[in-house]
């Protein structure tokens, strides 16, 4: 049933086109060493800053490294960071949100206060503060991004659970003697999960941008591991000599994020959950 449903989404123009681009990006991330024509760290100083040509389809950077290969490997960095961070965020946020929404009381008030507090800061600020505390590197930005997006999923799950808690079937389950654990994990979360998953998917797009921004500041994956943000950053110095260094990674980010947003939008329409996402 789920497969047939996805098939239906892919058969819309919007869903199909975005799904195609996303599959391409995911394939690049999974099979980067097989797809990339050169190694991402392979330098060729005499051939630095060459414009796109038959050997280097997207040109080379200031060390003569093949841009296409670096963008393909960069997909791996970007997706790994974004997907891991958001997955952590969704799981932890759902747990907090479900407990807060189900039990209410003091825990709920504390969680809501913290969520409201973090909600009032931009995600990048939260991520920067966290990186300042825990240091740079891939693991650090994964943790920083996951905490930056935690509030969103906590809030969404809490709202869903609070609405579902009033449902007759939840009361009926309690009436038959079910414990809190059973009610939360077998009935509430499965019913609340759809909008959270879709919100999570859309947040991956945001997280890719955040990862690129942090990479641009040199806070993400450390060289020579390519990340789209860091590549753009190194391109700023060559912007008038070799504009393609900054252009192509930027295009990769834009294309990926737009595809994620379009696919997420197609999912929202197909699942008919726009209103449930809005009442956060």
């Amino acid at each position: 049933m789920a497969l047939r449903f996805l098939w239906g989404v892919v058969h819309t123009p919007r869903g199909g086109a975005s799904a195609f681009v996303l599959m391409l990006v995911i394939a690049c991330a999974l099979f980067a060493p097989l797809i990339a024509p050169y190694g991402y760290a392979l330098q060729n100083l005499p051939g630095s800053n060459t414009s796109p040509n038959a050997l280097h389809w997207l040109g080379t950077d200031e060390f003569g490294r093949d841009l296409l290969s670096r963008i393909i490997h960069g997909a791996r960095t970007s997706l790994t960071v974004a997907v891991t961070a958001i997955s952590i965020s969704v799981v932890v946020g759902m747990t907090f949100g479900a407990i807060a929404g189900y039990f209410g009381g003091m825990f709920d008030r504390v969680v809501t206060a913290v969520v409201d507090l973090t909600w009032s800061f931009p995600e990048i600020l939260i991520a920067l503060i966290l990186i300042a505390i825990i240091g740079t590197g891939t693991e650090s930005i994964i943790i920083a991004i996951s905490i930056a997006y935690l509030a969103q999923f906590t809030r969404l799950t809490r709202a869903q659970v609070m609405a579902l808690r009033q449902e007759t079937y939840i009361e009926a389950t309690v009436n038959l003697g079910a414990g809190h654990f059973h009610v939360i994990f077998r009935h509430l979360l499965p019913n609340a999960i759809t909008p959270v998953i879709v919100a999570g998917m859309l947040a991956i797009g945001d997280a890719i941008i955040l990862e690129a921004t942090l990479g641009f500041f040199g806070l993400g994956a450390q060289p020579p591991i390519p990340s789209w943000g860091a590549m753009m950053s190194s391109g700023t110095a060559q912007i008038f000599i070799a504009p393609w260094i900054i252009l192509f990674p930027g295009a990769a980010i834009a294309l990926t994020v737009i595809s994620i947003n379009l696919f997420g939008d197609a999912l929202i329409d197909a699942l008919n959950i726009r209103s449930r996402l809005r009442d956060v």
Binding site: T168, Y169, G177
Partner: peptide, 18 residues
């Protein structure tokens, strides 16, 4: 609850998890 005393509620349409 459920083991010795069971409650059948009013509305069967909404008493089952969809």
């Amino acid at each position: 609850r459920g083991k010795r005393i069971a409650l059948i509620s009013q509305n069967p349409m909404t008493s089952l998890d969809p």
